[in-house]
Design a protein around this nucleic acid. Structure first.
Lengths: 330, 330
DNA sequence: ATGAAAGCGCTAACAA
DNA sequence: TTGTTAGCGCTTTCAT
């Protein structure tokens, strides 16, 4: 692997000059520039980022911590992050923290060791303290990590409200909400609050079933079957689209018709769902905007670590109509 | 950020000694070890990977190039890669090359600049030469990149055969295959070859519809509708499960029943499909094994760049039964 | 068992 | 406009 010095020799200039050419810095004659460029071409030269970062320049790497990317929602999220960061000249180290505290901790250490410029965190296994100690710009997606770490999220409260309104408009009276187990302090809890508000404003009640986020689809399926059979449910709000898909399936297996017998609405609205399951009504999170905002904030913090940012940034959601929430005329 | 020297001072030893403790190298007295450990704890010390890599140690970073991770197949692939590499002490830089030649080229350069130890490539936009010049250990998934770059893939030929057999066993006679546009030299073409062989051995013919991998679901949907309406098709093999999903939908919209009117089988068999669409018959690629093998080979090459590896490694596939390929008794 | 010193590839004062 | 030199944080001979 050719190094800067080799270029310098070949071009018959000093290393400094080569560095200047590479970084387009200081004053240089066209002639030297050309000599250097030619030499770089000839040796197929690539500056060593490591050495560059060591010498004070930033690494231009962002650590991205999510539970995983096999889930289409996180997949789209991470893909969007990666694409947008690439355009801004950054690369990402991907960290699938799963549901593993130890792993997340190890990742944090590793990211520090690798001198990343900042972190985008969409996972949530760790205690507040550990994030506080990182001493690196962090932006969090939809999770409370610690004071002073800004949270970007979609408008969970409004999302919950809209979901309730859709179900009510579809004529549902006997409503169930199926959500992941409550994370203390998590903004996603607001979906429940918003949902509840609307339902109760309409003098109705609703049942709440919590299913652990990390339960296997089989387990989830079972719980859903319970929900579907024990009640005369006619409307269901799932806090993510995959659970909604499962409900759709189980209903079919039980011979319940959607939307005739039960109306269904999910949450997230990934392009995957919109493209491959357009029948599913859902609340769409504005993934692109979320990502853009997270990156803007992160880069701000990177530029000026002491810059003042809000604790919460909330982006609007949108209802996506779908066959599963169609009103059945009586 | 505390550095090695700070530890040395605090522990009242030389930097060398600290380095020895960190790397568990050379001979050390218990006493010094303890002093150093204590100091490290106290300053919450993290060795700087960059500096370490600069000084000859490998970076322990692998570049992972795929089209994207919002597609569940690639998502699962990348997640598995990341998990397995983490266990082996490596981290990954994720590169979503999309369908963009320029981007893939830029990634290659960037990975070199970042001194990655090796590359796992699952994308396929570039010309052979560019990969040949990288001068880094590379393993490819399911794509021919260049001589001397090992390809790991599932048994595409056998997969095609099995798919054909399943459709035949289900009683289909008027069969269509829907595949991505043919990549020259790509191992995935063997799915077609295997499929064709079985169909023709049974004195049948089949129609082939090629749909560009990167077509939007809407475009794909249209083409599929054509396929479904222009023929009296009664059996379809899609070379990926998402297309298969689309066929399933379109068939419903056209009032065609699956499996009564048409039998359907896909390809890939991600856990996503198996869990959320168990009705879809498919050919499962052994993602875990593929990843394990790719990583084994890559680490071998990293250890010994000249080690002899085969050009092709083929792993067996498995048919996953599903309602969509059930035989209808007459 | 421990330390001194050189150097990895690059950048950035400071000189000229 | 260009070059000399020191040093980023760490590892590693070579001494002691």
């Amino acid at each position: 692997m050719a190094k800067l010095e080799d270029i310098a020799k070949l071009a018959e200039v000093s290393p400094t000059t080569v560095s200047r050419v590479i970084n387009n810095y200081g004053s240089l004659s066209e002639k030297t520039k050309n000599k250097v460029f030619t030499a770089m071409k000839e040796l197929n030269y690539q500056p060593n980022s490591l050495a560059r970062s060591l010498k004070g320049k930033s690494s231009k790497i962002i650590g991205v911590i999510f539970p995983g990317v096999s889930n289409p929602f996180f997949g789209q999220m991470v893909e969007t992050i990666e694409n947008q960061l690439f355009d801004r000249g950054y690369k990402i180290i991907l960290c699938n923290a799963g549901k593993n505290k130890e792993k997340e901790r190890a990742y944090l250490r590793m990211l520090i060791a690798n001198q990343v410029d900042g972190i985008i965190a969409g996972s949530h296994n760790l205690e507040i303290e550990e994030y506080q100690q990182v001493g690196l710009p962090i932006i969090s997606f939809d999770r409370y990590l610690s004071e002073n770490i800004p949270i970007v999220s979609s408008d969970n409260f409004q999302g919950g409200k809209i979901a309730a309104e859709v179900l009510l408009a579809s004529g549902s009276k006997n409503i169930q909400m199926i959500s992941g187990a409550n994370q203390p302090n998590s903004p996603t809890n607001r979906r429940l609050v918003g949902f509840k508000e609307v339902i109760e404003d309409n003098n109705l009640k609703f049942g709440l079933t919590e299913i652990k986020y990390n339960a296997s689809p089989n387990i989830k399926g079972m719980k859903i079957k319970e929900v579907l059979s024990n009640n005369s449910v006619d409307g269901i709000f799932c806090t993510d689209d995959l659970t909604s898909l499962l409900v759709f399936q189980q209903a079919h297996q039980l011979g319940l018709r959607i939307p005739e017998d039960i109306r269904l609405i999910g949450y997230d609205g990934t392009s995957f769902i919109q493209e491959f399951h357009p029948e599913l009504a859902t609340i769409e999170q504005p993934i692109n905007d979320i990502v853009t905002l997270m990156i803007d904030l992160l880069l701000q913090r990177i530029k000026d670590p002491d810059c003042n940012l809000q604790q919460n940034y909330v982006l609007p959601v949108k209802a996506i109509a779908g066959e599963t929430s169609r009103r059945i005329s009586e």
